[in-house]
Design a binder for these strands. Structure first.
Lengths: 248, 248
DNA sequence: CGGTCATTTGAAGGACCTCAAGCTTAGTGG
DNA sequence: CCACTAAGCTTGAGGTCCTTCAAATGACCG
């Protein structure tokens, strides 16, 4: 949660990394990014990146690592809203609404690209392409949360788990954390249960059932999808957007 | 679902109405809006404004009326993601991601302001203030969905209902559909149950219980909050953002 | 006044929760 | 190398919340 070593190198990877994956930044943008970026930050697993109450002046992009957005009731019941992967923007709500209503916590050792949030307005004024990308990411994030809401509201535990596994696999894949129907699982069953909206005990039983049916296996921090079409069938899975920013 | 009578009058109310509530549009923006707006559209209760599969070339703002965003599984189980009120933007996902993954349906007779979605990019290029407002609205919408996800995932039926009632009251209030702890309820118990993620039968029983405990009353299309602090207590309610766009 | 739709109520079953204990694993220090 | 600990995982038993099915009641409308 510290280690704010600034480095001006490879900045072009970060501001909206999705974009640089699909389209190289132009000169203006590169110039801008180097002005806008404050530095990099690496945090350990379990550390808080953004806290609900706090008003940090920062906005982040994940360069490497997993994190998760979550929100709790006063009595401690916690709901994981979504997981965050490289390229994802953290703290946009804070920058735009000047209020965060959720917390972001690192799941693995995570490297972030740090920006000044008070410069967001100047992005809109001077770099419409970047602004558009930010909005693109916000819209995409909302689309994912919509999907989770449908899942939590209308699927049973077994179906929810199937859906979440597929979702995580797909996201891990684009981040490079997956391969061959297998992906890293740097989380505990408790994290899963907080994402699924069920108890750890029931999550455990549901996982067991899913392994018993040879749909997945989970050994040593890795989850393998054994029967993709079987999983899709129980989840009533419908593929999400392909993650590609449209050409404008 | 038709009646596309164009009218150039009072356009300044619509493009991002929130904004015009808090700050008058400047000359540039007014000029822009009149170029950008296609017309107005009024739809009857129950009609579909935006359909998941469809690629309408339109983007809407609600001028008057209630609508709701929802999403279903293939077998028909439906989840209401959020309700939409005057000032809300509909179809931003379609415009930005070129893909809608939910449907929007009118709850009351609803009047919409219609825009061409392919002009969104020109907003970003030429009217950064409007672009910023659009992003503001997207961020706010996501914040609301986050709140619902916490609710559905971690509150029980009684608590969910309490939360939803307060939420709807607060939103109806800014839209002018509420007054004196009372608000319009242009929906059925089935809508409520789809928003809460529970069955109609259980929704009915939960409503009964809530009326029995003198927390609310529901008569002739109007819901009255009888005990606000009692409701807040059961919901563990925490106020949302004040809906005011920050000055930039 | 019949028909349709929303609401209401009952009874029974099942999904998920709670509580509680035992287990496994990895890390720590003697 | 072996306690010892702590955190996570596993399993059982019982209870509760919510669902399902089914039928009755009420409200509205032509």
């Amino acid at each position: 949660m510290s280690d704010d070593r600034a480095s001006q190198t490879e900045c072009h990877r970060c501001p909206l990394r999705k974009q640089s994956i699909f389209r190289p930044l132009d000169e203006n943008e590169l110039n801008f990014v180097s002005r806008f970026k404050t530095g990099e930050l690496t945090v350990d697993p379990g550390s808080t990146i953004l806290l609900e109450e706090n008003k940090t002046p920062h906005l982040y992009t994940i360069l490497d690592g997993w994190a998760f957005r979550h929100k709790s009731l006063v009595d401690g019941r916690r709901q994981i809203l979504n997981f965050a992967f490289p390229g994802d923007l953290l703290g946009l709500q804070l920058a735009i609404l000047s209020e965060m209503q959720h917390t972001v916590t690192a799941l693995t050792r995570t490297t972030l690209c740090v920006f000044q949030r008070d410069k967001v307005w100047s992005i809109f004024k001077e770099y419409p392409t970047l602004a558009y990308s930010m909005t693109w990411m916000a819209a995409r994030e909302e689309q994912m949360v919509d999907g989770h809401l449908l899942s939590i509201g209308r699927r049973n535990a077994f179906e929810r788990l199937a859906y979440l596994i597929i979702h995580l696999y797909e996201r891990a894949k684009v981040a490079g954390y997956a391969g061959n129907q297998t992906f890293d699982a740097p989380f505990t069953q408790e994290h899963l249960s907080d994402a699924l909206g069920i108890t750890p005990v029931h999550t455990n039983r549901t996982l067991k059932k899913m392994q018993m049916r040879k749909l997945i296996s989970w050994r040593s921090e890795r989850i393998q999808i054994l029967d993709r079409s079987g999983l899709e069938a129980v989840a009533a899975y419908e593929p999400e957007g392909d993650g590609q920013r449209p050409l404008i």
